[in-house]
Nucleic acid binder design. Structure first.
Lengths: 337, 337
DNA sequence: CCGCAAATAGTGAACGATCACTATTTCGAG
DNA sequence: CTCGAAATAGTGATCGTTCACTATTTGCGG
């Protein structure tokens, strides 16, 4: 590991002012906007700033302006990989002049909610973007002086909101499978505390209904491979569908293993689909039909709504579409059985 | 999405003091340590604090103490999933009283380094933990007043340091494969800017040498499935090894696909191993022999060295071992060919 | 060259905590 | 009861910036 440290005191606005032969307030104005200064004054300050290598003390600025310019992102740790969403979110926040604190909490909804309220309570952050479910009661418990909260994957009515919970690719998947001749489906859902899991389950049920399909049912899972594995093993031979729509690629991988263990071929006997376009699942045979996500874009757009709520600024959203189906070998025409 | 906001001014130390009938300095002492106060005074302040729901203004405290209590973690975005390491790191930082800012940068080493220097330069953070490679020149460019940098996966001599680069499980894998009868190996390395990739490559070469094995060579990859896929397809039939040691599970999945495409069975013809214990690779047949990592522990320990360098505090490290081999179906005895 | 508005620059207070002192109270020994 | 050190509490300055003013300079029509 490499370690370095130096600790000379940093120059202040007054030292810059003295060197430039102006008042500290003039330097302050220079920092805010370079308008309203004579060209001569401006260049003298320019010179002083670069000579002293001056950087404003943001803590002092925060103190006076009562704005910290900091946001927090609450990350889930157990169920899916939020790193790319975090990236999109931090980039967007950076564009809007905010820095982002990452908070990841292992535990249940209540633990996460408590931790989030604690963070808001310190007044250190101006807002929180929750990428993991939090308690719907959180809004009421916000401490006075508390800040805005945007929960991107959750709302008070337990319904998903926005792009994160857009389940339309699932409809596209099922329609594609129907074209392949499939009539009997099965869905292994994700953790239903996540709006995305609820939305996919709802979309599955609606599509079964709308297209008059058979369904071997829905098993509520937890985004894990084991949940897919167990769900398939729980089916009797008579129940066995010809197409399994899994909540994500991990669940699908568990389902595929269980199918293989039962002597069934994918996609010969049963087609399987996932979600997230997991790289390993693209390569390992059979390449898994999945939904490619622009996770950075989803993270960005979630952050945009927080930024807008706090500062009113509207930044450019990520270009659509943010998700689309990629068909691979794990899906195919039904065979006579 | 849920949004809430309230903005009554927060109470200050002086208001607490007035309510408790003491001086503001007494309240300040109360906040630092409750010692040296009369029980009566203490309980009066206790009452005042809870009545006003007082929380100290950390920005004001930072201003006076010249300590921000903030650290930054520089995350890689392209190659592997740092979310669990980030979690371990933030937990450790939290224990030591620091908050953590997440910075993820797409781009090359120079881009990351520049961004890191920018962050240090603002004086907002007391230290940076780099989980992605940064330029070895970064130390020299640290701005004056700059803070300590710990690069957990890199050092000036391009050699890996510490647990992140511990390649001993690779030796265990190869020894196990030798017991299975394997003599002819192949290694697909990760991105060699990462110390872990360099360490695994070095361990592979040393073990080949030490045990007098045959090697079909090493292909330098980039942690991607494609790199494993291409590497295997680049081999002639004569070169084909009986065991492929891949830099991680994704690379292994690409290798397996290429093997299957060439009509080879895993593990019947060729054994394959990965690294990271990717959940999908555990389930999809053949279950991949891999290295389970305590990523939270690795993140924690990396953060501990930063915390120690900054504050001198030594926290409890994660219990060892932090990685161990898990044997699965993708490895087996050699067959006569 | 005057007068007056607009443009530009300066002054001192304030943000909310801690630091470095000084002041007061407490309490046991003599 | 007094003295003096230890324990406890108070006072005012300070951190580096911006805010709310006031002061000065500039530019231009008459």
């Amino acid at each position: 590991m490499t370690e370095r440290s130096t600790e000379p005191r940093r120059p202040t606005i007054k030292e810059v002012a003295r060197l430039a032969g102006v008042s500290h307030q003039t330097v302050s104005r220079y920092l805010r906007s370079r308008n309203g200064l004579k060209p001569d004054t401006l260049s003298r300050i320019d010179a002083a700033v670069s000579e002293l290598n001056y950087r404003p003390n943001l803590v002092a600025r925060s103190m006076r302006t009562r704005r910290t310019g900091r946001l927090a992102v609450l990350l889930p740790t157990m169920f899916y990989n939020p790193a790319r969403m975090l990236h999109g979110a931090t980039e967007a926040a950076h564009e809007a002049g905010f820095s982002v604190e990452a908070v990841s909490v292992i535990g249940d909804v209540e633990t996460r909610t408590e931790r989030m309220l604690e963070i808001v309570g310190t007044g250190q952050v101006e807002g929180v973007l929750a990428l993991a479910p939090i308690s719907p009661r959180a809004g009421d418990q916000l401490p006075q002086g508390g800040t805005i909260v945007v929960a991107a994957d959750f709302d008070d009515q337990m319904r998903g909101i926005g792009e994160l919970a857009d389940a339309s690719p699932l409809v596209a998947i099922m329609e594609g499978l129907v074209e392949f001749g499939h009539r009997r489906f099965f869905h292994v859902a994700g953790n239903l505390q996540f709006a995305s899991a609820r939305a996919r389950k709802a979309a599955y049920l609606e599509t079964v209904e709308r297209l008059g399909l058979e369904s071997a049912g829905v098993v509520d899972g937890d985004w894990s491979g084991k949940s897919g594995y167990d769900a398939v093993h729980s089916l009797s031979d008579e129940q066995m569908p010809t197409a399994i729509v899994a909540a994500n690629d991990i669940v699908a991988s568990g389902a595929i293993r269980a199918l293989v263990e039962r002597g069934l071929d994918v996609p010969g006997d049963v087609s399987v689909t996932g979600w997230d376009n997991n790289e390993a699942c693209q390569y390992l045979p059979p390449g898994l039909t999945s939904v490619e996500l622009n996770l950075e874009g989803l993270g960005r757009n979630a952050m945009l709504s927080l930024v807008k709520a706090i500062s009113g600024r509207e930044l450019e959203p990520a270009p659509r579409p943010l998700q689309h189906v990629i068909w691979r070998e794990s899906t195919g025409p039904t065979t006579c059985r």
